[in-house]
């Protein structure tokens, strides 16, 4: 067991997203600096050592229309009216507020019904409509345990390994059934793998919400009768993605779970879910809110300058 590390997962706004934000700013948001809900799209990792991006697209402001192999994350965008307001953003205070909201979602078990609360993101921006330059900062709040209770992880193993909780073939069958249009885990991103008996037929996928009505969750997780599955944008051989961090803390808070086996689901169209991996995580003690530290700010990026590609006729039409 060694200190667990996790691949960061930050929103990646695309050109279409900024184009839509510009339209919304002019026609709908106007001078409002209120947070607007947006949807991010990501895929499970498609090859080793790759990390899929959490994309914000032109569709992010509309009802989510995820592709067959896409998953969604919930977020907000807060667009300031001036560059001064944007620069004056108090990142510590903002993160503290977001972390409190995340903690409340964990404490109330709201995340069981909506696992996407565990990987919500927030974008703060200033859209310079005259210069077509977009400044932004993003955060995906994470509640991190204190150093003494740092999460530890066993080495990762492929689901094709002998001690895997599920064989690649069986996992593929279960996943095909579960991820359908009406499947129980469609787009949730986090769900459970149950092993009621000893054979492959006793394995079943279930939504995370099924844990709320269950007793002995910590024991089942500790003994491997219950495995938590995460659709993972990180394809690294040595570690899993950001989403797992809040999940482990939440399970610790809700059920006192201190030993959890996580199956990181990776999915390529060539290999299916056969490249998925699993690892067992442990936490030193049950964590209290006062001990949890909030992290998750994205490194500041240079502003996006779209002035060279803006269409003058469109701009003239829209500004008329």
């Amino acid at each position: 067991m060694s200190a667990a590390r996790f691949e960061a997962f930050a929103p990646f706004p695309k050109v279409e997203f900024w184009a839509q934000l510009e339209k919304k700013k002019i026609h709908e948001m106007r001078l409002s600096a209120a947070s607007v809900p947006v949807t991010g799209f990501f895929k499970a990792a498609r090859s080793p050592n790759c990390v899929e991006k959490l994309e914000l697209t032109g569709e992010s402001f509309a009802a989510p229309n995820a592709g067959a192999y896409e998953y969604t994350a919930q977020g907000t965008v807060t667009n300031f009216n001036t560059i001064e307001e944007f620069r004056a953003l108090d990142t510590k205070k903002t993160l503290a507020g977001l972390a409190d909201a995340l903690y409340a979602d964990m404490e109330s078990n709201a995340y069981l019904a909506n696992p996407r609360l565990l990987f919500a993101f927030h974008v703060f921006s200033f859209a310079d409509l005259k210069a077509h330059v977009f400044h932004s900062r993003a955060v995906m709040p994470i509640l991190s345990p204190p150093p003494a209770d740092l999460i530890k992880s066993s080495p990762q193993h492929s689901v094709s390994a002998a001690k895997s909780p599920v064989s690649p073939a069986r996992l593929q069958t279960l996943w095909n059934d579960a991820r359908g249009v009406d499947g129980p885990v469609r787009h949730d991103g986090i769900f459970c793998l149950r092993n009621a008996g000893g054979d492959a037929d006793a394995l079943a996928l279930a939504p995370l919400s099924s844990l709320s009505a269950e007793e002995g969750v910590a024991e089942a997780l500790g003994e491997g009768r219950l495995v938590v599955c995460v659709v993972d944008a990180c394809g690294a051989k040595t570690h899993m993605g950001w989403i797992v961090r809040n999940l482990l803390v939440a399970l610790n808070m809700s059920f006192g779970a201190r030993r959890v086996t996580v199956l990181s689901l990776r999915e390529s169209s060539a290999a299916g879910v056969a490249d998925s991996v699993f690892a067992t995580f442990t936490m030193g003690a049950n964590v209290a809110r006062s001990a949890l530290r909030a992290v998750g700010w994205d490194a500041e990026k240079p502003p996006v300058d779209l002035s060279s590609s803006m269409d003058p006729s469109l701009l003239a039409k829209e500004s008329a």
Partner: peptide, 16 residues
């Protein structure tokens, strides 16, 4: 390829 978090502030963060 884009670093997304400050690893000094968050030792559990990785940027592949």
């Amino acid at each position: 390829e884009v670093a997304v978090v400050d690893e000094d502030e968050d030792p559990a963060a990785v940027c592949t």
